[in-house]
Amino acid sequence: MPSRLLPLLLLCFAAPALAGESVSRELEQGLAKSLQAVGENHLDVALNEVDSLLKINPNFKLAQLVKGDLLLARAKPISGFGDAPNAPRDRIQDLREEAEARLQRVQQQQPIAVPKYLWQLSPRQRYAVVVDTGKSTLYLFENVNGEPRYVSDFYISVGKKGADKVSEGDQKTPLGVYFVNGRLTKDKLTDFYGPVAYPLSYPNEWDKREGRDGHGIWLHGTPSDTFSRPPRASNGCVVLANNDLNEIGSHLQIGITPVIIASKIDWSNEADRADRASLLKEIEQWRNDWASRDTEAYLAHYAHDFSAGNMNLAAFAQQKRLVNSGKTWIKVRLSDVSIFPYPSQPDLVVVNFEQDYDSNNLSNHMNKRQYWMKRNGRWQIVYEGAA
């Protein structure tokens, strides 16, 4: 047993079971018990525990490795994790990293706060997903009367090269605010991706503005003969055990559910609540200035580096002045507003809403997305377009 795993065992074994446990969490608790028994030299107890894990899922390779070590220990003393002769070192190292990640997850407590990235959920968004790549964990939150409430969490694998994707083929998982874009079923997938896959909206508008490219970032499962993969094993996707993926899949809404990916989750605090209040006030002022036909006050809400597709601030302002000059009255109504601070960019927030626009010569309805950034204490719009 590697010495770096031993300190985790006492912490993990003492950790309470969490409400809303997933299959991954159940297996992790069993793994901790088995390794605890190994540390106490109760090898028969450890073997019974690991046999129980393999009954739950025979393809749990980490449990298979522990069982192999325990059987080997009957013949000779073992000096480390994965001590079988001629075992491939790279595979053993992958499983060691999975063991550490899973034991650290057992140690984690149920969140008592809300991630700072969930400032406001739309009434239509029944659930939100937040991924912590550093802790190999995906959190599921339910929208309960407008407040995010923790439901469960799941072990995940991310990119081979870690997080913060920049370019096609860099084998990194992107960091940002994304949405579930679709659902691919078995008839459109190879076995490698599991029973179902959910494409995400990478690259989003901010990624494109920052010159980030690539495609095909999905939430997906594992091959039918594999329970889970090492913490860093994908080409950039977020990978879950198939039963965990099926569990969260029942809660995902195409085009609606946010999936926010961070390298380390920050939790909401009083400063976040103050920032949220000031942003909501600024959004309402933007709406009011537009409806009042005060075009210059309306345009002051847009940053100097604002863009909307290929249109910069100067072109946008010229168009708005021309359009508004023909209006005798304007009404603007916003509904289903959601607000998500961006995890990898300080003071950047993604705002989505339904917009109903009426005037003396035009009426329309659209789903709109804006990116607001706070600079020198003031929120301004740096991007605007259809959602």
Rank of each mutant, 00 (worst) to 15 (best):
R321T: 06
Y298W: 03
W119E: 10
P7R: 06
N59Q: 11
L118W: 00
G385C: 10
V151W: 04
N204G: 15
S167Q: 14
P258E: 00
R126H: 12
Y202G: 00
M373D: 04
H301K: 13
A387Q: 13
V106I: 10
R321M: 05
P203Q: 01
R209N: 10
Q64S: 13
A15F: 00
K374V: 09
E247F: 13
E354F: 00
V177N: 01
D153A: 13
S157M: 08
F306C: 03
D164V: 15
N41L: 10
R378V: 15
A386P: 09
D83C: 06
S335D: 08
T257P: 11
Q171D: 12
P111L: 13
A315V: 13
P77F: 01
G39F: 06
L240A: 02
F192G: 05
L27W: 01
Y198Q: 03
P85T: 07
N288D: 14
R333T: 13
H301V: 10
L35Y: 00
P223F: 09
K76S: 14
L252R: 02
S34V: 11
T190C: 03
R232A: 07
A128Y: 04
W286R: 02
S344K: 05
L245Y: 01
L322N: 10
N204H: 10
N86W: 06
Q36E: 10
Q285T: 15
Y371E: 05
A128I: 08
L138R: 03
W372C: 05
V23Y: 03
L334I: 01
G326T: 02
M366S: 12
G211T: 15
V259K: 01
S167T: 14
Q370Y: 03
I217W: 00
E284G: 08
T328A: 09
N243G: 13
P341K: 05
L219N: 13
Y371W: 11
L184G: 00
Y383I: 08
I261M: 04
V349D: 07
D170M: 06
P203F: 03
Y298F: 11
S234M: 08
V38F: 01
E100F: 11
A32W: 02
V239W: 01
S201K: 07
D207Y: 07
P230N: 03
V23D: 11
W218L: 11
Y371Q: 09
Y139S: 02
Y155T: 10
N235F: 09
P203S: 05
P341V: 12
R105Y: 06
K61C: 09
E26M: 12
W206L: 14
T295W: 08
L121S: 05
D289L: 04
M311R: 15
A163G: 10
T133C: 08
E26H: 10
E384D: 15
W329F: 13
A99V: 09
T185A: 14
V45M: 12
E270D: 14
A197I: 12
L6E: 14
G134W: 05
N360L: 02
K331V: 13
V337T: 04
N364F: 13
F179V: 15
N57I: 07
I217R: 04
N324V: 04
G211M: 14
Y302L: 06
Q355L: 06
Q64R: 13
D294M: 11
D83R: 00
G385Y: 10
L175F: 07
D207T: 08
D90Y: 08
H301F: 10
A314L: 14
Q318I: 02
